[in-house]
């Protein structure tokens, strides 16, 4: 049962709590201390409440993050706390400059996970320094901070990052399939790449996944062209089921209302609704239902 306190006692207790916040900051020295275990330091990091983090707590978290001698799990915990404080702490915005500087300090860190997470944060900030380093790594693999597919993904956060030329090179000479896929995804916002996507969509030697990316990119860049190619693919009996299904969906979702009057196409859709794989049949039926034949 809690004791009832008089107003004077209540105020004294409140004052003493405030004093604890101001003076009882042992956790700040613990998180930075090289003599403490990783577990103790991580616990000290988590003692910072993101919603109430003040300037000195944020500065301590940044110090831990940039301390290359600290155990990686402590540094990752500091990064996580900073990320949470960024959204929750009113004091954070005025520390933004120091935060960005701290992140830039660790983009070269030997730990891959930390590097990737930090570069991810900077890329979302459209940070010119991070973009430079990522582009540099795509052009010269000795300088790469991340695998090319990840670097391309991060550069995709900013359409103005000037990653299109290097992405086009990667599409031509991909180091691996994932990199090619990411390069194509990046180029899906580049109006000048529409002709390339038309070629990819028509290329039966490409994998279905790559051709599907081509279809999605064309829908964003040149929707009329996608509709024309989708119709041709649906009509073509030698096309794969995957790409046929993609094209049926494109016609159903984004096609012009007069599709229903295209007798040749609708006859073909009728055929597909009873033959072929189950997924093609389903998509063909959906198209037929929408255009009410």
């Amino acid at each position: 049962m809690s004791k009832k306190l008089g107003p004077r006692k209540r105020s004294r207790r409140a004052a003493s709590k405030g004093a604890t916040k101001a003076t009882g900051r042992g956790y700040l020295s613990v998180m930075k201390s090289g003599k403490k275990s990783a577990a103790e330091r991580t616990k000290a990091v988590s003692a910072v409440s993101p919603a109430t983090a003040d300037d000195s707590e944020l500065a301590s978290l940044m110090a831990v993050l940039t301390d290359k001698t600290a155990p990686i799990r402590v540094r990752l915990a500091a990064l996580q706390s900073l990320g949470a404080a960024r959204f929750a702490s009113p004091a954070f915005a005025s520390n933004q400059g120091d935060y960005i500087a701290a992140l830039r300090k660790v983009v070269d860190d030997p730990d891959h996970e930390l590097r990737q997470r930090v570069l991810g944060i900077l890329a979302r900030e459209k940070d010119g320094y991070a973009q430079n380093r990522l582009l540099e790594g795509l052009k010269n693999k000795d300088k790469a901070l991340l695998p090319p597919e990840k670097a391309l993904q991060l550069l995709g956060y900013d359409v103005h990052a000037n990653a299109y030329p290097v992405a086009r090179e990667i599409v031509q000479n991909p180091p691996n399939q994932q990199a090619k896929r990411e390069a194509l995804r990046l180029l899906a916002a580049d109006a000048a790449s529409a002709p390339m996507f038309e070629k990819i969509l028509q290329d039966k030697n490409e994998s279905s996944e790559i051709r599907q990316i081509g279809a999605a990119a064309l829908h964003a860049l040149k929707p009329d062209s996608l509709q024309a190619h989708a119709r041709a693919i649906v009509m073509d009996p030698s096309e794969s089921d995957d790409i046929k299904q993609t094209c049926l969906t494109a016609l159903t979702q984004f096609g012009p209302p007069q599709i229903g009057e295209d007798k040749t196409l609708m006859d073909r859709v009728d055929q597909l609704s009873t033959r072929g794989s189950a997924k093609v049949q389903d998509s063909a039926r959906e198209l037929r239902a929408k255009y009410k034949r």
């Binding site: 459209k126 973009q131 000037n162």
Partner: peptide, 9 residues
């Protein structure tokens, strides 16, 4: 033919 960050710099 420069990126946005390069133009700013």
């Amino acid at each position: 033919q420069r990126g946005g960050a390069a133009v700013s710099r």
